[in-house]
């Protein structure tokens, strides 16, 4: 959008207010912490945080690097996108691999084959090894009931644990990130964006996303009301039929627990229109890991998860 189109005296739109809030948070954390890092999955939320960080420090480059916890079950498109993005912004990328932990026996593969919960230990180790004291993430409060309760700056002990019953009050736009050695702070600059806000923002800012987010033809099979890609990590059972279908992903994660939705939305405007009228949350629609119980996310967060 070019500047002469904006009436700068008009009431601020929701997106402008959310963008300014996020930029303020990112600048605060970079100014007050020694070594921040952004947890980057290649998903739309972490891509949005990176875009906001670039805007916060323009014309300087983003003053921190990226950290990816690779479950070993990622889509190739996502890994390519991740590497290209780090290069595009000219910043460092560190990768912590779940596979390394499985290979040397520190972690064991779960019977159901999902690796989502296995990411927690490599994440906490990577934070300690990197000496990161602030860890940016793209979590949003509208995603889940437990996330709805979390502060924008969320203190973690040296086990990475979140204590939901004893959170620091967060007042005005004053963030208190003080912590003792061994502790670190998770920072969620887009806490107040909804899924629709993120898509509206991606459209407005013309932010590049992995192609998985847009409708494409893929060989899939149906299970629990979701469409699963046929692949090494998600094979159909005998009674499940593989079909070629136009699908897109609403979240991108571990292939073994992330399903697609049937969709014809092949570009940003079509996706935006689809999200605006959706009747199911993105996690309910496409994440098997959050269907386990009402407290699935709370339990993982207390344990040090993203």
């Amino acid at each position: 959008m070019s500047i002469d189109q904006i009436d700068t005296r008009a009431p601020l739109s929701t997106l402008d207010a959310l963008e300014s809030e996020a930029i303020h948070i990112i600048r605060e954390v970079v100014a007050e912490f020694e070594k921040p890092v952004l947890l980057f999955s290649g998903g739309k939320d972490s891509v949005t945080v990176l875009h906001l960080a670039a805007k916060a420090f323009w014309p300087a480059k983003v003053p921190f690097g990226l950290l990816h916890v690779d479950s070993g079950h990622n889509f190739d498109e996502i890994l390519d996108f991740r590497d290209r993005t780090a290069q595009k912004y000219g910043i460092d990328l560190s990768v912590a691999k779940v596979q390394d932990y499985i290979d040397d026996g520190r972690l064991r593969e779960r019977p159901d084959g999902t690796r989502n919960v296995l990411q927690t230990q490599p994440l906490i180790d990577a934070i300690a090894a990197g000496g990161y004291d602030a860890v940016f993430g793209g979590a949003r409060r509208d995603e889940d009931k437990a996330r709805a309760k979390e502060r924008i700056l969320s203190l973690r002990d040296e086990f990475g644990q979140w204590d939901p019953n004893n959170q620091r009050p967060e007042l005005w736009n004053l963030y208190n990130g003080r912590h003792v050695p061994g502790e670190h702070v998770r920072v969620f600059p887009i806490s107040n964006f909804t899924e629709l806000d993120v898509w509206s923002y991606i459209a407005r800012e013309n932010i590049e996303l992995p192609s998985l987010y847009y409708a494409h033809e893929r060989e899939v099979f149906e299970r629990d009301g979701m469409w699963w890609a046929t692949g090494e990590f998600s094979a159909p059972r005998e009674d499940e039929t593989v079909v070629t279908k136009s699908v897109r992903y609403r979240t991108v994660g571990d292939m073994s627990c992330t399903g697609a939705v049937a969709s014809e939305a092949a570009d940003i405007d079509a996706v935006l229109a689809e999200v605006a009228v959706t009747t199911v949350t993105e996690r309910g629609a496409t994440r098997a890991d959050d269907r386990i119980s009402a407290a699935a996310m709370e339990d993982r967060k207390k344990d040090g998860y993203f």
């Binding site: 929701t14 935006l272 605006a276």
Partner: peptide, 14 residues
């Protein structure tokens, strides 16, 4: 750019 009725690009925030 299309604008859907529910877009947050123009609405104010309370």
């Amino acid at each position: 750019m299309t604008t859907t009725p529910t877009t947050t690009q123009t609405k104010t925030l309370l």
